[in-house]
Simulated assay, not measured.
Amino acid sequence: MTQSNTPFWQTKSLQEMTRPEWESLCDGCAKCCLHKLIDDEGAEDAAVDTDFINDNEELHYTNVACQYLNDKKCECTVYSKRTQLVPSCVQLTQDNLEQVFYMPTSCSYRRLAEGRGLPSWHPLLNKGKKSAMHKAGMSVRGKVIFDDMVTEEQYEDFIVVWPLHDLD
């Protein structure tokens, strides 16, 4: 909280936040750990894993999670090394906010970038606890399989819409 008791996320832009403030915004839902596919109606492949999106393409979420995700805690088991071990892992920072489109609509970074504020279930609004998020069904807990269990060619068989659900 700032001196005026207004939370930092209401007084600072995403670019103005300190690293600890930035990191605390992550709600820990782990939806970013899901493999996403880009659907391009003009391409030969119906959906491909990629790191960019064009205007004529559509982003799809799968329920296939990174093998390094602890799906009970909704935490990365190799957080400090995640981008080395998984080169396609998007590490969202103040310097690459243009990639926020990869995040689901419920993502706190995306919500703040779009001027929507934090959701009611966010840990920062619930004494630092994830229980309200899990109870609201906003995390990946109990909803995923892991990428070491299926081939990339099978990902499109696991396209889901629940990661796009947003409560408030």
Rank of each mutant, 00 (worst) to 15 (best):
E23I: 13
M103R: 08
L124D: 06
N63S: 12
W22P: 02
I159P: 00
Q154C: 05
V160H: 09
G115R: 12
I145A: 04
Q154W: 07
T11K: 05
C33M: 14
H122Q: 08
I159W: 00
L85F: 10
L92F: 03
F101S: 05
F158A: 05
E153W: 01
L85V: 13
R116W: 09
C107I: 10
T6P: 00
N96E: 04
D148Q: 11
L69F: 06
T18N: 09
L164E: 15
W121H: 10
E156M: 11
K72F: 10
S106P: 00
W162N: 05
V78Q: 03
R82L: 05
H60D: 00
H35G: 00
S24F: 03
V150A: 06
T83G: 07
I159K: 13
K130E: 08
S131N: 10
K143R: 15
G142C: 10
A113K: 13
C32M: 13
L112C: 04
E41S: 12
V100R: 14
V140L: 05
R19M: 08
F101D: 05
L164V: 06
C26L: 12
K81W: 00
A30V: 02
K31M: 09
F146M: 04
D39T: 08
V64R: 02
I145L: 12
A113Q: 14
R116D: 06
D157I: 05
T83W: 01
D49L: 07
T6N: 02
V100G: 01
E156L: 14
H35E: 08
V140C: 13
D148N: 15
D45I: 12
A113H: 12
D148I: 04
N54I: 01
N96W: 03
C33R: 03
Q3V: 11
A43P: 00
F101T: 06
P7M: 07
Y102F: 15
F146S: 07
E114T: 07
I159V: 15
G137V: 14
E16D: 15
K129L: 11
S24A: 15
N5M: 09
N54K: 12
T151W: 02
T11G: 00
D157V: 05
L25D: 01
C33H: 06
K72G: 02
C32P: 03
D55C: 04
C76V: 09
H35T: 09
K31W: 01
V161N: 07
T105K: 12
L125R: 15
E114P: 00
Y68R: 00
K72A: 14
H165V: 15
P20Y: 09
W162L: 01
A136H: 05
N56L: 03
E114L: 13
M103E: 06
N70V: 08
D147I: 10
T2K: 11
S80K: 14
E98A: 15
L125T: 06
E156V: 09
I145D: 04
H35N: 11
D168P: 01
T11Y: 00
Y102G: 01
K72H: 10
A43C: 04
G137R: 13
S139K: 08
Q94K: 15
A132G: 01
L34S: 08
H134A: 10
P163S: 06
C32W: 01
E57R: 07
V86M: 13
E41F: 06
F8T: 08
S108Q: 01
N63Y: 01
V86S: 04
R111Y: 04
D147G: 06
K130Y: 09
E152V: 13
L37Y: 03
V64P: 00
N96A: 09
V48G: 00
G128E: 07
A113P: 00
